[in-house]
Write a protein that binds this DNA or RNA. Structure first.
Lengths: 241, 241
DNA sequence: TCAAAAGTGTTTCCCTTACACCCATGA
DNA sequence: TCATGGGTGTAAGGGAAACACTTTTGA
């Protein structure tokens, strides 16, 4: 909910946004054999959270999610999927938000719309780490990549949201062939295998992996990549269609 | 949204319920080799819809969904799963609801909470047709089973919601082993195969199906079932754990 | 010429498919 | 004893797992 102050400042009554519904986005990236998650930090509070936002009154919620991810990464044409709606009453912890808002210079009255109960629609996005430009919503906040295995504690139930997003990613990786969205345009088979091994958290056999991927008929073989390493140069591949 | 008048009558301002969020439930049953869906009809309007409801202010949304399904079927211990949230702006068609409310004897003012934009959380439920007791929310409405292949037109985007629920059921049938929830406690292998064939809409080979199911180790073989038919009596099975 | 990593060949194994066959039941 | 559907046996086919092997690269 990185936009909460922004939305709050623009229209303190929450005008223009649907009330009671928020979007939380788990934005995955892949770099140095590590899965990364984009997190925002509310400065002066030490609180970390998933990027998020609200839905405009005339906006489709899927478009709102695209907008949120786009604003935080500077990218469009993003792979994005809804995976769960988090609606337990126990999520409702207004004190945490009061703290965030106070640190931002607002002294919200108790009935403020942002202090009401919210339901969150969880989306996960897969982006090309090399092209994403993490961008905070406002000047005092930060927006940065964190290793999935080394995240700070997050507000509310955001840690569980990340967990569930990862479960969904794992389940869909094979049968929806979405992993390519985490890689640059061109990549080696080794890159792809490392990605799979990282996401699934298990070693794969190279010959089997290569054959399986090639047999899918969705990879185009390009030129070779000479990395300078003392070994055979791997082919570069591109995802087709 | 079978409860809208109920909720509206109890508290015209929508007090006690979260605003802007509804639950729609696709309740599947299986009978006579047909997949059935539970639909409600708003009498005096000829409008059909999915059973639905709202979320109480202190209630988890998953519990609200359980409550809705429980109220319409008379069952508890129901298999229920969230599958999508429908949040396009184009869903917002207040005229249809005005008509429903007017037919129910209410003349809602334009700003009425039920005439605002709503986002729907879609759940699908799998119930034992033989035990379910379809129960309308209020006296003028009906609540009945319809063949999936022979449904009346539904309000709003409810037909697409059913479609997406069916897609989800198909995708999960094999890998989550949830089909048993559609059958009575005891069933024959033929019953189970018919269920699979109906849901997946394709013929399966009996030997392969039987071996696959038995190899899962989740079926307990009981006594034989003498149906009176002039053929070998099939075994009854029960789903274990 | 050597080590490191990429890529291919080949065998084995297992699960699914396909079909043949036997079994029990009531008319 | 016959038709009907239930259940098992068995052989063929296809894909994954495991491992051996060849190839290319820079030191």
């Amino acid at each position: 909910m990185s936009e909460q102050r922004e939305a709050g400042e623009i229209n303190p009554g929450g005008l223009g946004y649907l009330k009671g519904i928020a979007i939380d986005a788990v934005i995955f990236g892949f770099h140095d054999s590590q899965l990364k998650v984009l997190l925002i930090e509310y400065k002066r509070t030490g609180l970390f959270a998933l990027p998020g936002g609200f839905i405009r009154e005339l906006e489709n919620i899927n478009d709102a999610a695209l907008r949120v991810v786009s604003e935080r990464t500077g990218l469009d044409n993003i792979f994005l999927d809804q995976f769960y709606i988090f609606g337990d009453y126990s999520r409702y912890q207004p004190d945490e938000f009061k703290k965030i808002m106070s640190a931002g210079g607002m002294a919200p009255p108790d009935g403020h719309w942002l202090l009401q109960r919210f339901v969150s629609v969880g989306y996960y996005a897969l982006v090309d780490f090399t092209r994403a430009k993490p961008t905070p919503a406002i000047i005092f906040d930060s927006c940065e990549w964190y290793d999935l295995t080394n995240m700070p504690p997050l507000i509310q139930d955001h840690t569980q949201i990340v967990r569930k997003a990862l479960d969904t990613l794992r389940a869909h990786l094979d049968d929806k062939l979405i992993g390519f969205n985490l890689l640059p345009e061109e990549f080696t088979m080794g890159d792809l295998q490392q990605l799979y091994e990282t996401v699934l958290d298990k070693k794969l056999l190279r010959p089997a992996f290569q054959r399986k991927m090639l047999s899918l008929g969705i990879l185009e073989r390009l030129s070779k990549k000479f990395s300078g390493g003392a070994h055979k140069a791997p082919y570069l591949y591109r995802f087709i269609k």
